[in-house]
Write a protein that binds this DNA or RNA. Structure first.
Length: 350
DNA sequence: TTCCAGCACC
DNA sequence: GGTGCTGGAA
Protein backbone atom coordinates (compact mmCIF):
# COMPACT_ATOMS: atom_id res chain seq x y z
CA UNK A 1 0.00 0.00 0.00
CA UNK A 2 1.31 3.42 -0.88
CA UNK A 3 -0.05 5.67 1.82
CA UNK A 4 1.17 8.87 0.25
CA UNK A 5 -0.91 8.42 -2.89
CA UNK A 6 -4.07 8.13 -0.82
CA UNK A 7 -3.30 10.94 1.62
CA UNK A 8 -4.32 13.84 -0.64
CA UNK A 9 -7.72 12.57 -1.78
CA UNK A 10 -8.43 11.37 1.76
CA UNK A 11 -7.71 14.81 3.23
CA UNK A 12 -9.80 16.52 0.57
CA UNK A 13 -12.81 14.27 1.14
CA UNK A 14 -12.45 14.54 4.90
CA UNK A 15 -12.21 18.33 4.94
CA UNK A 16 -15.15 18.66 2.57
CA UNK A 17 -17.22 16.50 4.87
CA UNK A 18 -16.04 18.51 7.90
CA UNK A 19 -17.10 21.83 6.39
CA UNK A 20 -20.73 20.79 6.48
CA UNK A 21 -20.78 18.40 9.45
CA UNK A 22 -18.44 19.79 12.10
CA UNK A 23 -19.74 20.09 15.64
CA UNK A 24 -19.87 23.50 17.26
CA UNK A 25 -18.12 22.93 20.55
CA UNK A 26 -17.32 25.64 23.11
CA UNK A 27 -13.59 24.80 23.30
CA UNK A 28 -13.27 25.21 19.55
CA UNK A 29 -13.84 28.96 19.89
CA UNK A 30 -10.44 29.47 21.49
CA UNK A 31 -6.74 28.84 21.08
CA UNK A 32 -6.03 29.33 24.77
CA UNK A 33 -3.93 26.30 25.74
CA UNK A 34 -5.52 26.28 29.21
CA UNK A 35 -9.04 25.95 27.82
CA UNK A 36 -7.94 23.35 25.27
CA UNK A 37 -6.03 21.36 27.89
CA UNK A 38 -9.01 21.48 30.25
CA UNK A 39 -11.40 20.31 27.54
CA UNK A 40 -9.10 17.49 26.47
CA UNK A 41 -8.65 16.17 30.01
CA UNK A 42 -12.42 16.23 30.53
CA UNK A 43 -13.00 14.49 27.20
CA UNK A 44 -10.62 11.62 27.98
CA UNK A 45 -12.86 8.55 28.28
CA UNK A 46 -15.87 10.84 28.24
CA UNK A 47 -18.52 11.57 25.63
CA UNK A 48 -18.74 15.10 24.26
CA UNK A 49 -22.40 15.43 25.33
CA UNK A 50 -21.55 14.58 28.93
CA UNK A 51 -18.32 16.60 28.94
CA UNK A 52 -19.88 19.88 27.82
CA UNK A 53 -21.69 20.58 31.10
CA UNK A 54 -18.56 19.81 33.11
CA UNK A 55 -16.41 21.96 30.81
CA UNK A 56 -18.75 24.89 31.24
CA UNK A 57 -18.73 24.54 35.02
CA UNK A 58 -14.94 24.23 35.16
CA UNK A 59 -14.14 27.12 32.83
CA UNK A 60 -16.61 29.31 34.75
CA UNK A 61 -15.40 28.28 38.22
CA UNK A 62 -11.71 28.15 37.25
CA UNK A 63 -11.30 30.56 34.30
CA UNK A 64 -7.51 30.33 34.27
CA UNK A 65 -4.70 28.11 35.47
CA UNK A 66 -3.98 30.41 38.44
CA UNK A 67 -7.54 30.09 39.76
CA UNK A 68 -7.43 26.31 39.36
CA UNK A 69 -4.05 26.06 41.09
CA UNK A 70 -5.25 28.15 44.02
CA UNK A 71 -8.38 26.06 44.62
CA UNK A 72 -8.43 23.27 47.21
CA UNK A 73 -8.39 19.74 45.75
CA UNK A 74 -11.74 19.01 47.42
CA UNK A 75 -13.37 21.83 45.46
CA UNK A 76 -11.93 20.51 42.19
CA UNK A 77 -13.11 16.98 43.02
CA UNK A 78 -16.59 18.26 43.88
CA UNK A 79 -16.77 19.97 40.48
CA UNK A 80 -15.59 16.70 38.89
CA UNK A 81 -18.03 14.53 40.89
CA UNK A 82 -19.84 12.03 38.68
CA UNK A 83 -17.40 12.15 35.77
CA UNK A 84 -15.39 9.12 36.87
CA UNK A 85 -11.68 8.36 36.52
CA UNK A 86 -10.97 10.76 39.37
CA UNK A 87 -7.21 10.61 38.84
CA UNK A 88 -7.88 12.99 35.94
CA UNK A 89 -9.10 15.63 38.42
CA UNK A 90 -6.17 15.03 40.76
CA UNK A 91 -3.69 15.29 37.86
CA UNK A 92 -5.48 18.37 36.52
CA UNK A 93 -5.06 20.10 39.86
CA UNK A 94 -1.44 18.93 40.36
CA UNK A 95 -0.51 20.10 36.86
CA UNK A 96 -2.11 23.51 37.40
CA UNK A 97 -0.10 23.94 40.61
CA UNK A 98 3.12 22.80 38.91
CA UNK A 99 2.60 25.20 36.00
CA UNK A 100 1.95 28.15 38.30
CA UNK A 101 4.73 27.34 40.77
CA UNK A 102 7.47 26.36 38.34
CA UNK A 103 6.56 27.78 34.91
CA UNK A 104 4.92 31.17 35.56
CA UNK A 105 1.57 29.61 34.71
CA UNK A 106 2.57 29.02 31.08
CA UNK A 107 2.01 25.80 29.18
CA UNK A 108 4.89 24.00 27.43
CA UNK A 109 4.86 24.86 23.72
CA UNK A 110 6.12 21.58 22.34
CA UNK A 111 4.69 18.07 22.10
CA UNK A 112 7.55 16.68 24.22
CA UNK A 113 7.07 19.41 26.83
CA UNK A 114 3.33 18.76 27.00
CA UNK A 115 4.02 15.03 27.52
CA UNK A 116 5.80 15.81 30.78
CA UNK A 117 2.55 17.10 32.31
CA UNK A 118 0.71 14.72 34.65
CA UNK A 119 -2.34 13.26 32.96
CA UNK A 120 -1.16 14.21 29.46
CA UNK A 121 -0.29 11.22 27.26
CA UNK A 122 0.40 10.98 23.56
CA UNK A 123 -3.19 11.68 22.53
CA UNK A 124 -3.63 14.80 24.66
CA UNK A 125 -0.16 16.15 23.85
CA UNK A 126 -0.90 15.83 20.13
CA UNK A 127 -4.32 17.43 20.56
CA UNK A 128 -2.96 20.47 22.40
CA UNK A 129 0.10 20.85 20.16
CA UNK A 130 -2.01 20.73 17.00
CA UNK A 131 -5.03 22.74 18.17
CA UNK A 132 -3.40 25.39 20.36
CA UNK A 133 -0.08 25.71 18.47
CA UNK A 134 -0.86 24.29 14.99
CA UNK A 135 2.05 21.89 15.17
CA UNK A 136 1.93 18.79 12.92
CA UNK A 137 1.13 16.00 15.39
CA UNK A 138 -1.54 13.47 14.45
CA UNK A 139 -3.99 12.53 17.20
CA UNK A 140 -4.75 8.87 17.73
CA UNK A 141 -7.91 8.38 19.76
CA UNK A 142 -10.64 5.75 19.60
CA UNK A 143 -12.31 7.54 16.69
CA UNK A 144 -9.13 7.70 14.63
CA UNK A 145 -8.30 4.03 15.28
CA UNK A 146 -11.75 3.07 14.04
CA UNK A 147 -11.67 5.24 10.90
CA UNK A 148 -8.21 4.06 9.89
CA UNK A 149 -8.87 0.40 10.70
CA UNK A 150 -11.90 0.47 8.42
CA UNK A 151 -10.51 2.56 5.56
CA UNK A 152 -7.37 0.44 5.31
CA UNK A 153 -8.86 -2.77 6.71
CA UNK A 154 -6.27 -3.17 9.43
CA UNK A 155 -6.93 -6.07 11.79
CA UNK A 156 -3.89 -5.63 14.00
CA UNK A 157 -5.21 -5.21 17.58
CA UNK A 158 -5.20 -1.45 18.12
CA UNK A 159 -3.57 -1.50 21.56
CA UNK A 160 -0.88 -4.07 20.79
CA UNK A 161 2.68 -2.80 20.38
CA UNK A 162 2.61 -3.57 16.66
CA UNK A 163 -0.80 -1.97 16.28
CA UNK A 164 0.20 1.27 17.97
CA UNK A 165 3.24 1.57 15.66
CA UNK A 166 1.28 0.73 12.53
CA UNK A 167 -1.58 3.14 13.23
CA UNK A 168 0.76 5.93 14.35
CA UNK A 169 2.79 5.66 11.13
CA UNK A 170 -0.35 5.71 9.02
CA UNK A 171 -1.85 8.63 10.94
CA UNK A 172 1.34 10.65 10.46
CA UNK A 173 1.22 10.04 6.70
CA UNK A 174 -2.38 11.16 6.40
CA UNK A 175 -2.11 14.26 8.60
CA UNK A 176 -2.34 17.55 6.74
CA UNK A 177 0.84 19.25 7.99
CA UNK A 178 -0.43 22.70 7.04
CA UNK A 179 -3.73 22.43 8.89
CA UNK A 180 -3.11 19.92 11.69
CA UNK A 181 -5.77 21.54 13.91
CA UNK A 182 -8.56 21.30 11.37
CA UNK A 183 -7.44 17.89 10.14
CA UNK A 184 -7.32 16.34 13.63
CA UNK A 185 -10.72 17.69 14.64
CA UNK A 186 -12.14 16.63 11.29
CA UNK A 187 -11.07 12.99 11.56
CA UNK A 188 -12.30 12.77 15.17
CA UNK A 189 -15.67 14.27 14.22
CA UNK A 190 -15.84 11.92 11.24
CA UNK A 191 -15.38 8.96 13.58
CA UNK A 192 -17.83 10.32 16.13
CA UNK A 193 -20.60 11.23 13.67
CA UNK A 194 -20.21 9.22 10.45
CA UNK A 195 -17.88 6.25 11.00
CA UNK A 196 -19.64 5.32 14.26
CA UNK A 197 -18.83 2.13 16.17
CA UNK A 198 -21.95 0.14 15.40
CA UNK A 199 -24.08 0.14 12.26
CA UNK A 200 -22.50 3.12 10.49
CA UNK A 201 -24.54 4.53 7.62
CA UNK A 202 -22.03 3.52 4.93
CA UNK A 203 -24.50 4.26 2.12
CA UNK A 204 -24.18 7.96 2.94
CA UNK A 205 -20.43 7.90 3.57
CA UNK A 206 -18.24 10.04 1.31
CA UNK A 207 -15.37 7.57 1.84
CA UNK A 208 -17.25 4.44 0.83
CA UNK A 209 -15.59 4.01 -2.58
CA UNK A 210 -12.17 3.80 -1.04
CA UNK A 211 -13.05 2.14 2.25
CA UNK A 212 -11.56 -1.35 2.17
CA UNK A 213 -13.70 -2.60 5.05
CA UNK A 214 -16.85 -1.44 3.29
CA UNK A 215 -15.82 -2.87 -0.06
CA UNK A 216 -15.08 -6.24 1.51
CA UNK A 217 -18.10 -6.23 3.80
CA UNK A 218 -15.90 -6.22 6.90
CA UNK A 219 -16.98 -2.99 8.60
CA UNK A 220 -18.19 -4.84 11.69
CA UNK A 221 -14.93 -6.79 12.00
CA UNK A 222 -12.56 -3.88 12.65
CA UNK A 223 -11.08 -2.34 14.71
CA UNK A 224 -9.85 -5.38 16.66
CA UNK A 225 -9.37 -4.99 20.40
CA UNK A 226 -7.71 -7.30 22.86
CA UNK A 227 -9.99 -9.42 25.00
CA UNK A 228 -10.53 -7.63 28.27
CA UNK A 229 -9.61 -9.18 31.58
CA UNK A 230 -12.29 -10.51 33.88
CA UNK A 231 -13.86 -8.09 36.35
CA UNK A 232 -13.04 -8.36 40.03
CA UNK A 233 -16.15 -8.83 42.17
CA UNK A 234 -16.30 -7.02 45.51
CA UNK A 235 -18.92 -6.71 48.26
CA UNK A 236 -19.28 -3.36 50.04
CA UNK A 237 -21.35 -3.05 53.21
CA UNK A 238 -21.89 0.60 54.03
CA UNK A 239 -23.18 1.47 57.49
CA UNK A 240 -24.99 4.76 56.99
CA UNK A 241 -24.63 5.91 60.60
CA UNK A 242 -27.06 8.73 61.30
CA UNK A 243 -27.14 11.15 64.19
CA UNK A 244 -30.20 13.25 63.57
CA UNK A 245 -29.77 14.52 60.00
CA UNK A 246 -25.99 14.26 60.13
CA UNK A 247 -23.95 11.44 58.58
CA UNK A 248 -20.50 10.09 59.36
CA UNK A 249 -17.96 9.88 56.54
CA UNK A 250 -14.24 9.47 55.98
CA UNK A 251 -11.93 10.13 53.06
CA UNK A 252 -10.80 7.14 51.00
CA UNK A 253 -7.05 6.77 50.93
CA UNK A 254 -4.67 4.18 49.55
CA UNK A 255 -4.20 2.71 46.10
CA UNK A 256 -7.78 1.89 45.21
CA UNK A 257 -10.82 3.34 43.51
CA UNK A 258 -12.22 6.75 44.51
CA UNK A 259 -9.07 8.13 46.15
CA UNK A 260 -9.86 11.29 48.15
CA UNK A 261 -13.60 10.87 47.76
CA UNK A 262 -15.63 10.42 50.94
CA UNK A 263 -17.68 7.44 52.13
CA UNK A 264 -19.60 5.88 55.01
CA UNK A 265 -18.15 3.31 57.44
CA UNK A 266 -17.39 0.36 55.19
CA UNK A 267 -16.88 -3.36 55.59
CA UNK A 268 -15.60 -5.01 52.43
CA UNK A 269 -15.65 -8.74 51.78
CA UNK A 270 -14.75 -11.00 48.86
CA UNK A 271 -17.86 -13.13 49.36
CA UNK A 272 -21.41 -12.07 50.20
CA UNK A 273 -22.13 -12.29 53.91
CA UNK A 274 -25.10 -11.89 56.21
CA UNK A 275 -26.05 -8.78 58.16
CA UNK A 276 -25.92 -10.87 61.37
CA UNK A 277 -22.30 -11.81 60.85
CA UNK A 278 -21.42 -8.18 60.13
CA UNK A 279 -23.17 -7.00 63.28
CA UNK A 280 -21.10 -9.38 65.37
CA UNK A 281 -17.79 -8.04 64.11
CA UNK A 282 -15.89 -5.90 66.65
CA UNK A 283 -15.38 -3.10 64.10
CA UNK A 284 -19.09 -2.74 63.38
CA UNK A 285 -20.04 -3.08 67.06
CA UNK A 286 -17.69 -0.19 67.83
CA UNK A 287 -19.35 1.97 65.16
CA UNK A 288 -22.91 1.24 66.22
CA UNK A 289 -22.47 1.29 70.00
CA UNK A 290 -24.75 -0.42 72.52
CA UNK A 291 -28.01 1.06 71.35
CA UNK A 292 -28.95 1.64 67.73
CA UNK A 293 -31.87 1.37 65.34
CA UNK A 294 -31.42 -0.53 62.06
CA UNK A 295 -33.46 0.44 59.02
CA UNK A 296 -34.19 -1.41 55.80
CA UNK A 297 -30.99 -1.88 53.79
CA UNK A 298 -30.76 -0.69 50.18
CA UNK A 299 -28.90 -2.83 47.67
CA UNK A 300 -27.13 -1.28 44.66
CA UNK A 301 -24.88 -2.78 42.00
CA UNK A 302 -22.08 -0.62 40.60
CA UNK A 303 -19.89 -1.50 37.63
CA UNK A 304 -16.46 0.03 37.19
CA UNK A 305 -14.06 -0.55 34.32
CA UNK A 306 -12.50 -3.61 35.92
CA UNK A 307 -14.67 -4.29 38.92
CA UNK A 308 -18.22 -5.17 39.87
CA UNK A 309 -19.26 -3.86 43.27
CA UNK A 310 -22.28 -5.26 45.09
CA UNK A 311 -23.12 -2.59 47.64
CA UNK A 312 -25.51 -2.82 50.55
CA UNK A 313 -26.37 0.43 52.34
CA UNK A 314 -27.51 -0.18 55.91
CA UNK A 315 -29.06 2.90 57.53
CA UNK A 316 -28.53 2.96 61.30
CA UNK A 317 -29.54 5.61 63.82
CA UNK A 318 -26.83 5.74 66.43
CA UNK A 319 -26.62 7.38 69.83
CA UNK A 320 -22.99 8.48 69.82
CA UNK A 321 -22.32 12.01 68.61
CA UNK A 322 -18.80 11.23 67.41
CA UNK A 323 -17.23 8.29 65.61
CA UNK A 324 -13.46 7.88 65.93
CA UNK A 325 -11.86 8.19 62.50
CA UNK A 326 -14.97 9.71 60.88
CA UNK A 327 -16.18 13.23 60.30
CA UNK A 328 -19.71 14.21 61.23
CA UNK A 329 -21.18 15.84 58.11
CA UNK A 330 -24.31 17.97 58.08
CA UNK A 331 -26.68 17.96 55.09
CA UNK A 332 -25.36 21.36 53.96
CA UNK A 333 -21.74 20.21 54.29
CA UNK A 334 -22.60 17.24 52.03
CA UNK A 335 -23.00 19.80 49.22
CA UNK A 336 -19.25 20.36 49.21
CA UNK A 337 -18.15 16.82 50.05
CA UNK A 338 -17.04 14.84 46.99
CA UNK A 339 -18.44 11.31 46.88
CA UNK A 340 -18.48 8.46 44.38
CA UNK A 341 -21.31 7.95 41.90
CA UNK A 342 -22.35 4.93 43.97
CA UNK A 343 -22.85 6.98 47.14
CA UNK A 344 -24.36 9.86 45.20
CA UNK A 345 -26.86 7.45 43.70
CA UNK A 346 -27.76 6.08 47.13
CA UNK A 347 -28.19 9.57 48.59
CA UNK A 348 -30.38 10.60 45.67
CA UNK A 349 -32.75 7.73 46.47
CA UNK A 350 -33.43 8.91 50.02
C1' DT B 1 -29.99 -6.03 32.11
C1' DT B 2 -26.05 -6.22 29.51
C1' DC B 3 -22.82 -4.18 26.33
C1' DC B 4 -19.91 -0.81 24.81
C1' DA B 5 -17.27 3.42 24.07
C1' DG B 6 -13.61 6.48 25.56
C1' DC B 7 -6.84 7.34 27.56
C1' DA B 8 -3.19 7.50 31.07
C1' DC B 9 -0.40 5.61 34.71
C1' DC B 10 1.99 2.05 37.43
C1' DG C 1 -0.23 -5.99 31.25
C1' DG C 2 -3.44 -4.45 34.87
C1' DT C 3 -6.26 -0.69 36.81
C1' DG C 4 -9.31 3.45 37.15
C1' DC C 5 -15.63 5.15 35.84
C1' DT C 6 -19.95 6.45 33.80
C1' DG C 7 -23.98 6.79 30.88
C1' DG C 8 -26.38 5.65 26.88
C1' DA C 9 -27.36 2.17 23.37
C1' DA C 10 -28.67 -2.48 22.47
Amino acid sequence: MNSKSVALPFRTTLLNWYETHQRNLPWRQTRDPYAIWLSEIILQQTRVEQGQGYYHRFITTFPDVQTLAAAPLQEVLKCWQGLGYYSRARNLHATAKALVNDHQGRFPETYEGLLTLKGVGSYTAAAIASIAYRQPHAVLDGNVFRVLARLFLIDTPIHSTAGKKQFAALADTLLDPHHPDTYNQAIMDFGALQCVPSKPDCARCPMKERCLAHNRDAVALVPVRKAETAKRVRYFYYFVCRQGNDLFLRERTGKDVWQHLWEFPLVETEQPCTLESLLSSPEVMAWLGDSFTLHTPVSLKHTLSHQLIHALFIPVDIVATTLPGFTRVSPSAMETTPVSRLIDLYLSKL
